[in-house]
């Protein structure tokens, strides 16, 4: 399988006043197409910073990130947004659905942005697959945590991205919902052939990925 993502000598430092905190140190990482990777490590080790860099939501202090043979580190915010819009789906620990949009509208948002012909219809098909047929027109406040995360996953995968970034996708869920979400996510990745990079503290969930990366003090161990 060819490489989807390459990180070369990535460093990330945060400046706090006169002090500089080194979050990621000389990270080299290759992710192949259709590969599933879990990123584990202690709190503050740099896991979330790593997927923020991969998603183009932060810029590294130094180093290169190459996505689909295109270096994204030198691109401006809009150009990175364009790549993210078409190729990267992001799942957050706290779901982050738009509060005044219904479940269908939350999913249709990314589809409309990618010029899908019938975004609402596609969104409904997807939500139906995730067992949310009865929740199409519910607002996020009317959904349970598990349902919200299923909508969030549907939103992230709706435009069939090559890469899915998931930050603690089951972190705010109970065991039952965690298992269900994990199953949905991995089933989808397998069916659609997307790559998945997932940050998690949950060892069982981490074990579901083909490759497990451990980060400690900003370095891959």
């Amino acid at each position: 399988m060819s490489a989807l993502l390459k990180l070369k000598k990535i460093n990330l430092k945060y400046q706090t006043g006169k002090d500089s905190i080194s979050v990621l140190k000389n990270i080299d990482l290759n992710i192949k197409k259709k590969e599933t990777v879990s990123v584990v490590g202690e709190s503050g080790s740099g896991k979330t910073s790593l997927i923020m860099l991969i998603g183009g939501l932060e810029k590294p202090t130094s180093g290169k990130i190459i996505f689909n043979d295109q270096e994204i580190t030198g691109l401006n915010e809009d150009e990175v947004s364009e790549i993210r819009k078409k190729n990267i789906g992001i799942i957050f620990q706290s779901f982050y659905l738009i509060p005044n949009y219904t479940a269908v509208e939350n999913v249709a948002l990314t589809l409309e942005l990618n010029n899908f012909k019938n975004p609402e219809k596609e969104a409904k098909i997807l939500l139906d697959r995730f067992g949310l047929k009865h929740r199409f027109n519910n607002l996020p406040s009317q959904l349970s945590g598990g349902e919200q995360q299923r909508v969030a996953i549907a939103r992230a995968i709706a435009m069939k991205p090559e890469l899915i970034l998931a930050d603690e996708p089951t972190g705010n869920l109970d065991t039952e919902n965690s298992i269900m979400i994990a199953n949905i996510l991995f089933k989808y990745v397998k069916e659609e052939g997307s790559s998945l990079i997932m940050v998690t503290h949950d060892p069982k969930l981490a074990d579901k990925a083909k490759r497990k990366i451990k980060i400690k003090d900003g370095k891959i161990k």
């Binding site: 998603g55 939501l57 915010e77 809009d78 947004s81 364009e82 993210r84 819009k85 078409k86 992001i90 982050y96 659905l97 738009i98 509060p99 005044n100 948002l109 990314t110 942005l113 990618n114 939103r155």
Partner: peptide, 15 residues
């Protein structure tokens, strides 16, 4: 604030 951040995350330009 959060909705704006979500829009940016899914690919909306700031402009």
């Amino acid at each position: 604030n959060m909705s704006i951040a979500v829009r940016k995350a899914v690919g909306f330009y700031s402009g």
